[in-house]
Structures are given as C-alpha cells and as structure tokens.
Amino acid sequence: MKVLVPIKRVVDYNVKVRVKADNTGVDLANVKMAMNPFCEIAVEEAVRLKEKGVVTEIVAVSIGPKTAQEQLRTAMALGADRSILVETDEDVQPLGIAKALKAIVDEEKPELVILGKQAIDGDNNQTGQMLAALTGMPQGTFASEVDVADGKVKVTREIDGGLQTVELNLPAVVTTDLRLNEPRYASLPNIMKAKKKPLDTKTAADLGVDLTPRVTTVSVEAPAERQAGIIVGSVDELVEKLKNEAKVI
C-alpha cells in the first residue's frame, strides 16, 4: 500500500527563538531550519512499515516555500520514494494545508497518511485532524504504536490519563507522538541517492485550493520573564519560607 507523509520545514528545535523588536513575529533570519521533529518520526514510521513489507511506496509532501525542498530531500534520504512540493510563500495555516493535502490525497489515493501531531513553530496540532475531516477518514492522533493488519490500522494513542487503543478503517490518518519511534540518521550514500529521486513541484492554483490565512497575527511578544529567587541554605529555611513567606503549605 501507499503511504503519504506530509512534512513541514520549521526552525531547528535546538534554536532558541527570539521575538523581533517590532513585535511582528520571531526572528528567523539566518536561523537554522530543519524538518519538524514530529515529521521525522512520521517519515521513520513509514520507512519501518515499508521495511516490514506493509508499505510499498512512500510519498513525502510539503506545503511551503521553495526551500522546503531541502526537507523533502531529507525525507527521501531517510527512505521516501518520491516527493511533492506545493510551493507557496503564503503564511500557511492548518486549514489551508489540510485542503492542499486533501487535493494531494485525491490524486495519490494513499491508504495511510502519517504526519506529525504538531509543528514546533505554531504548536497548532490541527493539520492531521483537519485532513481526516476533509477526506472523511478516521484519525489516530498522538500515536505511540501503529499496527496495520487486515485492512485496518490499530493505533495506540497517548492520552492525558494514559494510553488508548483505537481501530480505524483504511484509509486513515495517523499523527505521531514522540514515543512512536526514534528516527534514524540519513547515511551519506542515501543522501546522494535522494538527489536523484523525483520531486514534483505544484502550486495551490494547480490543486485548486485557497491558502489565504484565516487567522492574522496582531503581535508577538516575549513571555513574561520569571525572576530568579533566592538560594536557601537549608531544608529548615526552605520550610520556613514556604510557610511564612510564600504561604503555600
């Protein structure tokens, strides 16, 4: 079966982002960009399913700027067979992305779509669910285990109180949580090979979708800084402070 893996280019997770002085956003000039960590997990899961013989083809897709080609090449170095870039300079938002992905799903007809539960820039956690709604597919969000068998997929989900397992008809959407797997690194020969794998470029107009943002950012501020307090000398002093100064116990 075919699996579609949508990925996003985001700021590298090791970068400490700073809010711009004019409060219009965060400063991304000259900042290292990378594949969103949850998307890496999605690619890895697809590759493992292919290694198990469950999946025959992995198609990576990204909706974003031209530079997102780098992340698609990374996905192909990790094991995706080919990729599609829907190129746009628009501030893409989950609903728009989900609509573009639906158009891709209509063309490609994958039996499984695996994507990250959220991107570490916008922290929205919406795209997979929205794609599932638009395509009428069931969804297994926050997956920590994925098991495909007999035309269904069993997904163990990380929920607030513990774990929940659901069974979904295929085609289905799965979104990845951190513990699903540990992504591999791309080997040099695979990075070289990925350069020759096909990468199609399309536009939103080709797909007939409207990516116009629905939500506008009025301003972005740095969070209130927490002031460091004091170092206490002993447990006795700590107990005294908590009782009499902070009055929390």
Binding site: L95, Q129, M130, A133
Partner: peptide, 19 residues
C-alpha cells in the same frame, strides 16, 4: 486536553473555519 485537541480541529474543518 488530548480529547479537545483530537476533535476540535476536526469539527472546525467540517465547518470550514480555522481553529
């Protein structure tokens, strides 16, 4: 919560609105 995050985007997309 994991419940709200699970269904709210789905409901929003069905209504064709942002979440």
């Amino acid at each position: 919560t994991t419940t709200g995050k699970n269904f709210a985007p789905r409901a929003a997309a069905l209504l064709d609105v942002a979440q």
